[in-house]
Design a binder for these strands. Structure first.
Lengths: 119, 119
DNA sequence: GAAGATTGAAGTCTCAATCTTT
DNA sequence: AAAGATTGAGACTTCAATCTTC
């Protein structure tokens, strides 16, 4: 019945998942999602298209033609978008503070070095 | 232009995302996905229904009526399912080994304690 | 009514194919 | 041909509603 302790790799994934859930919940308070808040650029183009679709539907962003390149569209953040972004940032900052407190007993340099090695 | 270093919280999420991508890629080699391999029970019921749908479509699982409770279905793993599971486990083990090697310079007890605190 | 499973709808992500513009 | 955006399809996840059985 060999069944060692849960590998560290899964402990990492589990911890990250828990943190991510908290981030999503915090952003939900201000009617945002993680994806909408981050507007990440580390994804495929079609994902951005759909994400901007949803942001535009929420009135947070407006598509504008790029005058310099007619293939391009610019996503212009609306006033509501800026307000929402600020509210989201506030939520995330609060979470970061709590995160830091939770890890107050840990040497952050070492911890971050370990995470960086895994990237 | 205050713009501190990327918070540790995001470093964690980023590292976990990188690791998860590698896990998915490894499982893809044996025609599995992370969800199909883990068959996690930490999700809502409707998710399980759909996951079993996909597993059944792949021939890895078979729905069987529960004789003791006519509301229930049992998901019986097929021979192919067991074979696939073993292949997936092999891939994951290899990744874990690499993961451990990458973190060989880190005190795993401390690292795991930090992760556990975040759960 | 509560517990099983399922369905429908929506968000997030990826890939392949397409269309326009450069 | 290469670079922009988009569309269509599929995987994964959640929630709300429904249906059957307990």
């Amino acid at each position: 019945m060999k069944e060692g302790p849960a590998p560290t790799m899964f402990a990492l994934l589990q911890a990250a998942h828990a943190v991510e859930t908290r981030v999503e919940e915090a952003l939900e308070k201000v009617d945002l999602s993680g994806a909408k808040f981050v507007e990440r650029l580390t994804c495929v183009r079609s994902n951005i298209t759909q994400l901007v679709d949803r942001l535009e539907a929420d009135g947070l962003v407006r598509r504008v033609d790029d005058p310099d390149d007619r293939r391009s569209k610019r996503a212009e953040v609306t006033a509501l978008g800026r307000k929402r972004q600020a509210a989201g940032a506030k939520q995330v900052e609060a979470l970061e503070a709590k995160f830091t407190r939770t890890l107050s007993g840990v040497d952050s340099t070492t911890f971050r070095a370990a995470l960086a090695a895994l990237r």
